[in-house]
Design a protein around this nucleic acid. Sequence first.
DNA 1: CCAGACGTTGTT
DNA 2: GTCTGG
DNA 3: CCAGACGTTGTT
DNA 4: GTCTGG
Length: 234
Amino acid sequence: MCGRYSIILEEESLTRAFHAQLSQDIPPHYNAAPGQSLPVITNEKTSQVQLFRWGFIPQWAKEENVGYKMINARLDGIEEKTSFKKAFQSQHCLVLANSFFEWKQSSSGKNGKTPYLIKPKDQSLFAMAGIWNRWTNYTTGEEISSFAIITTEANELMGSIHERMPVILSSEQAAGWINSSLSIDKQKALLTQYDSEQMEAYEVTREVNKAYNDYPQLLEPLGDSIRIQTGSVS
DNA sequence: CCAGACGTTGTT
DNA sequence: GTCTGG
DNA sequence: CCAGACGTTGTT
DNA sequence: GTCTGG
């Protein structure tokens, strides 16, 4: 799954990869967590980065905390899910990221879980496929826009760490995902499993476990950690 | 019909 | 165990 | 995702 | 709101 990631937005790479603008200052997130306002690009406004809350709040929700249970949406079966159906048809977004974290359960059961950082080898900024929703709290009138990250089966590289991973899009796939003039069938075909050969992963400090820790050192390889790439360990 | 769920991951 | 909050 | 709380009343 | 289950 994907329950934590990093995003430090730079205007230049944003423009180059996604042809979108920043309309406000967006603080760096070295340790983005569910419940926070994070940068996305939606199909409704493809030229602007907006801040949406991570944790999809469905139409039927009576209160916003429902969103904490819906930080991810499984691609498999998503069209049959009451909560996600409508958004999967017409409310797509790109969740901007530089890397994401996954925790590997130690085989012995001892030492608990070890956090890893995973990212594409080549591009520093990438998009994860997301769905969004706009929800109104009828008690307070407050309107909240929220999103979930679509997940799929782990590829070879990810498999050694965790069973699931986010759907990662190339910039061409990303453009199609938020292009509402494409048919849903064509858009669905864009949601492919990212190539294992193009990714790398390494162990990071357990300081990342605490969501209130948010600084650049969280992204550094742990001193004696191994770097994982498909077919080789270096 | 009404009532109750509506989600994911991992662990047991 | 289960829920909330970051 | 992980961490941390999980409760009430009354008094300061 | 909408679907599933009784």
